[in-house]
Design a protein around this nucleic acid. Structure first.
Lengths: 222, 222, 222, 222
DNA sequence: GATGAATGAGTCTTCATTCAT
DNA sequence: GATGAATGAAGACTCATTCAT
């Protein structure tokens, strides 16, 4: 088994275990068992328990941001971009339940490190939204008085709360598509300017299927 | 000193300590110190550490829900109700930073109990929103196709994320009033039906100053 | 049981356990058992395992130095002082086997801290010897060419090696008095000047029996 | 690379590492790195960590004893022999700082095995001294009442403490020659009989430069 | 023989909880 | 009721040793 594989095995096991118990209630021994490695092996790949959590954010959020950015870039109309963003966000959560739960729960942890950490990676994600808004305002599609700094949080928060609902409850009352359409419609209608032209259909970007393999196998430094 | 006082002293100390460190990184000894009582005294009022957290939710969220419901009931137009809800939510967070941080962070903890717990008390809060929406739909003010179950989450999520921003960052970039107006306007414009009549000004309810005394001093059972 | 008692109980237990196994092979659990306290109790009185060792040196060597200084001061002739020093050193080792073993073995540990530490307390002990030599040189009793800095180490080393013999082997081949007399005679004859007057008998100071109780019960800070 | 070379490389590396950290704080991985071999390779040459320490004593002390015995044998006068012993001991320590530190520190470890071990090899070294004394007593040069069993320890201890001073402190306050002359003079003057004839100059043996190659390359059995 | 990734037993330390005073 | 010293279970982490390659 290649080193990268074991790193991945541990990360994936940790995602499942953290999702199941939360970070603090998860034991290294449990992660090791879930990953089918010895306790000590984990410390060949990570400096400590917390380092595993950080790695999850680093690697997994990074992948998601890259993916969302790529797909958004293929659309023109900011309204379609918002709609697409909503759909992508919800379907990524849907497809990665455990990861989503870990991120949602642990990202809120208020440890000093996390607070700072959140601001770096997370801000990047939020700014995708505010840039869409600004683009729309420049194009006369969105009202000038919308404050992108508030909008990005409101929009993200709406999606985030919706996905928390999915993560926490097992029953799926609404489909991803329905929820994405509803939520994006609230916001799009809510900020569209009077003179905005009707949306012109664009080709939906086809989902990228080839999973990129760019794992760094080096032990993440504290 | 009356029993209720000591109970309150411990709860308030715990809110500060939990806000500072998070639940898991908080020590009973620290709470005891903050409350100026002995470690053991805490166990005269609470069954265990977790019980303190539960009590915070029970008592404090209960107060907030009651307050919000009362104020919302004094308004007629569902659009004003939404706006008022947004303002109340944000200003309550603003006024109770520590409590808000505890609720936001720890409410996400995925312990089994919390999951269940969340659904009870929290659902009540969310349903204030969906009832406003249904009322608006019945009055022809909001579009029929809006799904209240999705809307309530989106609206709450938007406010919640906004307040998280306040809780985590120390700098206040936007005033509560501005944020509340922006966010509620997104949603109100977003779901208003074409034939909705213009909003008719109503008397803003005056904030209820008398702190309600409904403390249960009995030891909360696990 | 008073706090000071428990501190003492732990120190005394640790001396026995360290003497038995050496510092590194001693487990906190074993010390706790020997002291009849719970593992955690040790951490109410000491910051960590190493802190116990340091405390042993601080408190026990301090007592010994004070005792030796006091008794030496009661004699006039530097030759009698050296003889008395030898006797005291060996009989203190004899009377405190475990403590002596801990000091002898662990004082040699080369951890950075210990190196520094050794120089502080230990130098004080050695300097008792060099001061006796200087006094003797000034009085014309000891040869001028004797270098006190070398002598103090040689004299101490001779006694120390002798006592190690006692500590390590259980059989006592020579009495303390014999060994003290032999060793001090080597050195005294070895450094006496030609014109030194004969030793005039002095009253041997009577051993101080009342054990002083000046234990500090406060947790030693790291 | 010949097997003996790798064995030697590991032993020499271990001497450096043990001297640096002490036995318990030294890690097999560090020794392996210092020796430029893989961790596992060490176990091809040694049974376990402790076995390396034992081997250091076995081989290195053996060399020293042989060397000292050889040089002492070339002198006649027991007083010159003692002086020579002192000089050799101190200069060997000086020339092999790391080895000396390891022996001094770890020889004191109180593990059962070490205690027994010390008695075997170490006794041989000490007995070189007592034999010199007996020879001198028989020749009427040393006082009859000197007890060789005490003297050997006192003499060795004096030298040992002096060399510990060198090992632990980096600054060299006294030259080896000075220290050797001082210390041996204390003891020689201290035990010389009244009628001892003056010392007659003898040829100093020239240091043996050819490093003896008697390495056992076989894995040392526990 | 040589490697170094993997193992997992072992231990210090923390801290929620108890209970004698 | 109040105290805070004492408890001991629990768990992160280390590192000597093994063994498949």
């Amino acid at each position: 088994m290649k080193v990268a594989d074991k790193h991945q095995k541990i990360v994936q096991a940790a995602i499942r275990v953290f999702a199941r118990n939360g970070f603090f209630n998860s034991k290294i021994a449990e992660i090791a068992k879930e990953a089918n490695v010895a306790d000590g092996t984990i410390y060949l790949y990570f400096n400590n328990k917390y380092d595993i959590l950080i790695t999850i954010f680093e690697e997994e959020i990074g992948k998601i941001i890259a993916r969302v950015k790529r797909e958004i870039a293929q659309l023109e109309d900011p309204r379609l971009k918002l709609e697409r963003f909503a759909y992508l966000h919800l379907s990524l959560v849907e497809a990665n339940r455990d990861l989503a739960e870990v991120i949602q729960v642990e990202l809120r942890q208020s440890s000093k490190f996390m607070k700072e950490y959140r601001n770096k990676k997370f801000a990047e994600y939020l700014n995708i939204i505010s840039q869409i808004v600004r683009q729309g305002q420049n194009a006369g599609i969105f009202k000038k008085e919308i404050m992108p700094g508030i909008f990005k949080r409101a929009f993200f928060g709406a999606l985030d709360e919706m996905s928390r609902f999915w993560v926490l409850s097992s029953k799926k009352k609404y489909s991803v598509a329905t929820a994405a359409r509803q939520i994006s419609s609230y916001f799009i209608n809510g900020i569209e300017s009077k003179q905005a032209p009707p949306v012109k259909a664009e080709r939906q970007p086809k989902p990228n299927k080839s999973k990129t393999k760019r794992k760094k196998s080096s032990k993440s430094k504290k």
